[in-house]
Design a protein around this nucleic acid. Structure first.
Lengths: 127, 127
DNA sequence: ATAATATATGAACAGATATTCATATATTCA
DNA sequence: TGAATATATGAATATCTGTTCATATATTAT
């Protein structure tokens, strides 16, 4: 990878350095406004939790309200273990929460961001 | 997996069938409003495109406007090949578009859905 | 305390994914 | 046409991910 050098504007292509297509001004300016690596990591982890078909189906199921694990299992049609593993992923990403009632755990959408993201995803694919 | 049978309400837990925690009414009602497997697949594929740190950084770079590949490469700090592969993934997901100008390709965010999803993702992790 | 039910969890394996390397394609310039 | 630049692409590989299977934990009922 070439190093970014400064103050070497090329007469033929004023925005670029060394005619190499490196718009140093733009890159330097954007680099300051850029999200941090840490933020990018957490955002990607968040979307990773939404990147599996089973988890997406679980979340859309929960849009109608809270459900216990065995009902999710029934509705989504995967094994108890698989649902549980996926619910943990969703929980860790802050996408769902749960409460206990007797032997059952009732899962629900964590907040309205989640519903909106799902709605937007669905909208995006329908274009 | 137990089969869903109808009309067998259990006296002890009226919402459930066979005391097995299966809320058959709820499950049947939700099953009708459920997104299809196909929709779930496409939505998960969309979010999968957002589930990688490099791609997230590329997209946030592009929020400021279009950029050519070599500038993205410089800003994000990964190899030319890696950027190109990731741009293809983003393109296939409909998240970015591009136009050619001479030897360079200028990539940009495909539509406002994308910006909003990114903004919401960032918002969600900051809570 | 014991049994039954609901859910979680760890290990293992098959399949997916991101990067690298080498090379191909497309465009411009001389 | 040939050289240089910008980007794309295929193959290979190491890593990651989702499911299954077996088992553990937690709650309730007997």
């Amino acid at each position: 990878m070439d190093e970014i050098k400064d103050g070497m504007a090329c007469p033929e292509c004023p925005h670029h350095l060394e005619c190499g297509g490196k718009n140093i001004e733009l890159v330097k300016r954007l680099a300051e406004k850029m999200i941090t690596e840490e933020e990018a990591y957490y955002v990607s982890e968040l979307f990773k939790a939404l990147s599996d078909m089973t988890r997406v189906r679980i979340l859309f199921s929960l849009l109608g309200g809270e459900m216990c694990v065995c009902d999710i299992q029934e509705l989504v049609g995967v094994s108890q273990s698989a649902v549980s593993h996926q619910l943990r992923t969703l929980k860790q990403a802050g996408l769902v929460k749960y409460r206990r009632e007797g032997k059952s755990l009732y899962y629900s959408i964590a907040d309205s961001h989640v519903s909106t993201m799902l709605a937007m995803g669905l909208e995006h694919i329908s274009e």
